[in-house]
Amino acid sequence: MSDTDRELDNLLRAANPIDEGGLPMPSESPSAQLLYEKITGTPYGGSARRPQRRWKGLGLAALLAVAGGGAAAAAAYAISSHVTTHLAVTCYGAPSLESHALVVPAEAAGPVATCSRAWADGRLGTGPVPLLVACATPQGVAAVLPSALGADVCGQLGLPALPAGASSFSSTTAPTAPPTPPTDAAGTLPPAVRDAIIEDLRSTCSTSADAERAITKLLVKANVKWTVVTPTPFPTGRPCASPGFDEDGKRVVLTGIPPLSPP
């Protein structure tokens, strides 16, 4: 390489618009850690790993569906930011995931509306209901936190924000609608069946085995060729089954959530 080439390369290096050294390492970047956890299904920090690879991670299913399609990448990431646990919302008393929190049954109006009611009832604090924002946790649960006007609480916590009107439910179909046979040859789960599953688990705290039985019955009745899986045993303190819907694998994936606080 000639001196002139070296000089030119130095000019180019100086024109680098992004100084990599100014970027965080993955251990310092919440968004990197969130990405890692979404992909592998294992926490980024610490050495304790879950006993299984969790390809079956609920939010990952949608991400996998479009992997490799660059044009679809934005959509994939958006989908992965949605809640996948539809039965419960966690309402926090302060803009921190360490603050006092209530797990409450999700209402069709959405997580913010659900937690507004808890605030209005005085269960999270006194005074007027604060401005609330909803984020999706890495576990696919809607977390609703108080926020100052213009503050990016979700961003500060490294969590994707949910739209203000986001519903914890995956469909607007009435939960009581009876299951209908699928009409889609691709094997899409009909919304009515999905809602029936959600409603069934919403009404009681079901063990994994009970939930699998009940959901299998609903799927058979609706003639839907989906399966039910429990990727990992429910941990202590999270004994109640919550469904996630893996459209790619055509599976209902059960995860454990805490018992719902009484409304």
């Binding site: 990599e20 990405l35 890692y36 994939a76």
Partner: peptide, 28 residues
């Protein structure tokens, strides 16, 4: 991750687009 993130940032119109690229790369 940081190198890929920097690469994506240099070639994307904004942070969100770069995040999407990085997500796609590491998922692949």
């Amino acid at each position: 991750w940081r190198r890929v993130f920097a690469y994506a940032l240099r070639r994307s119109p904004n942070r969100a687009a770069a995040d999407d690229v990085v997500a796609d790369v590491f998922l692949t």
